[in-house]
Simulated scan of single mutants.
Amino acid sequence: MAVTVRSDLVLSHAVVTSDVTGNFDDVDIESWLKNLPTHEYQRCAPGDHKAAGYTVDDDGTPMSINVEVIGTGLVIQQYRYEVASKHYCKMVSISDILTPTGWTTTQVIWELGMEQLEGDQLRYVNTVTSHPTEEFLEFITASGATFEEAAAARQKASCQHCELEAPHYAQSIIAYAKSNPATAAA
Rank of each mutant, 00 (worst) to 15 (best):
T4P: 12
V5P: 13
R6F: 00
D8R: 10
L9M: 11
L11D: 05
S12H: 05
S12V: 00
S12A: 04
S12M: 01
H13Q: 15
A14H: 03
V15R: 07
V15C: 06
S18L: 05
V20S: 09
T21A: 05
V27I: 06
V27R: 02
V27H: 08
D28A: 13
I29R: 00
I29V: 09
I29M: 00
I29A: 00
I29H: 02
E30M: 09
S31E: 06
S31K: 13
W32T: 13
W32K: 02
L33E: 00
L36C: 13
T38R: 00
T38A: 02
T38D: 01
H39F: 09
H39L: 08
Y41G: 05
Y41F: 14
Y41C: 04
C44H: 14
C44N: 15
C44T: 15
G47H: 10
G47K: 03
D48G: 12
A51M: 04
A51S: 12
G53R: 08
T55L: 01
V56D: 02
V56P: 03
D59S: 03
D59Y: 01
G60E: 09
P62G: 06
M63S: 00
M63A: 03
S64N: 01
I65A: 11
I65W: 11
N66A: 09
E68F: 14
V69S: 12
I70G: 02
I70M: 07
L74M: 13
L74D: 11
I76P: 00
Y79I: 08
R80K: 15
E82A: 11
H87E: 03
Y88A: 06
C89S: 08
C89K: 07
K90C: 12
K90P: 11
D96V: 10
D96S: 14
L98E: 10
L98W: 07
L98S: 10
T99V: 01
P100M: 07
T101K: 06
T101H: 08
W103I: 10
T104F: 08
T106K: 11
Q107N: 07
V108Q: 12
E111L: 10
L112T: 15
E115M: 09
E118S: 15
G119H: 09
D120I: 01
D120T: 14
Q121H: 02
Q121C: 01
R123Q: 14
Y124R: 00
V125H: 04
N126R: 01
S130I: 04
S130K: 13
H131P: 04
P132G: 01
